[in-house]
């Protein structure tokens, strides 16, 4: 590669970083503007202000934001966990066993994945009202499974397919019991796949908005994306741009941290599930 080419690729790389970070930087900057500064027409705040964070963490909006944050974490983690356990079994069967109906399960997963959320929201809303799941944690966890399960099954079966299962037998041959062979050989090989799937499932459930606004109505189960629309300014007519920006930054922190730590695995998971490399 010539030096000129190298420089070109580096410049292109910088462009990508700017592309990816610019809107995030903007929302961070916005969250640091005080309410009087918000309309300054500039990218950066005139003076740094923690006013918005104060408002959502300890101030008026804390009652709204903190329960929402707790709900978001709780509901999303549980949904991710259930999806991972269920799809772990399913993916094991798909990757390892030979049984009729394998195609059916995979096609169902595909069909569920392309399902328009809005089409499910209406009937779920009716059903939940009737059986009392409206505005509860399970009332969101269950629909979140429709988002996380199909993807988890795909991604994990793609990972599991690549595990050299013969090694399990080899270990048994070496004198290990079935359980030992499974624990010492297969578990370490399978863990990265499960883990990666969990991260991607977490992202997907974390991103939900339509279920959140339609199936909840109080702090008992309202997740953060739905709570963003409830912030208010000093009066009901004033725009709460600042607190919304601050809350947006806070909910973005966990995903950014996950991305920074696990970027290599996430990429492998995303591409494995859809296009087998």
């Amino acid at each position: 590669m010539s030096t000129r080419e190298k420089v070109l690729w580096v410049v292109a790389g910088i462009a990508i970083v700017v592309y990816a970070l610019f809107p995030v930087g903007w929302i961070v900057s916005l969250s640091l503007k005080s309410s009087d500064d918000i309309a300054n027409g500039q990218f950066l705040p005139t003076a740094l202000s923690w006013e918005n964070y104060e408002q959502i963490l300890v101030g008026d909006a804390a009652e709204l934001f903190l329960p929402a944050l707790r709900n978001s974490f709780g509901i999303v983690l549980i949904a991710t966990f259930i999806a991972c356990v269920l799809s772990m079994f399913a993916a094991y069967a798909i990757a390892r066993l030979d049984f009729t109906g394998k195609k059916l399960i995979l096609s169902t997963a595909l069909a569920v994945a392309i399902f328009p959320v809005i089409s499910i929201v209406t009937p779920l809303f009716n059903l939940w009202r009737q059986i009392g799941l409206y505005d509860t944690w399970p009332g969101l966890i269950i629909p979140y499974l429709s988002l996380t399960l199909p993807l988890s099954i795909w991604t994990m079966s793609a990972f599991f397919r690549e595990i050299p299962w013969e090694m399990e037998q080899a270990a048994q041959v070496d004198g290990a019991t079935t359980w030992q062979a499974f624990r010492k050989v297969i578990v370490p090989l399978a863990t990265p796949g499960v883990f990666t799937t969990a991260i991607i499932a977490f992202f997907i459930a974390w991103n939900d908005f339509a279920y959140g606004i339609s199936l909840t109505s109080t702090s008992a189960s309202r997740p953060v994306p739905a709570a963003l629309g409830l912030f208010s300014g000093a009066s009901q007519f004033e725009s709460p741009n600042g607190p919304i920006a601050a809350a947006a930054v806070i909910v973005t922190i966990p995903v950014v941290v996950l991305v920074l730590i696990f970027q290599r695995r996430i990429v492998a998971g995303l591409t494995n599930g859809a296009v087998k490399g």
């Binding site: 009652e63 709204l64 702090s219 629309g229 409830l230 912030f231 009901q236």
Partner: peptide, 8 residues
């Protein structure tokens, strides 16, 4: 006890 409704 108060519960907050949306803004609109």
């Amino acid at each position: 006890e108060v519960s907050i409704l949306p803004r609109q």
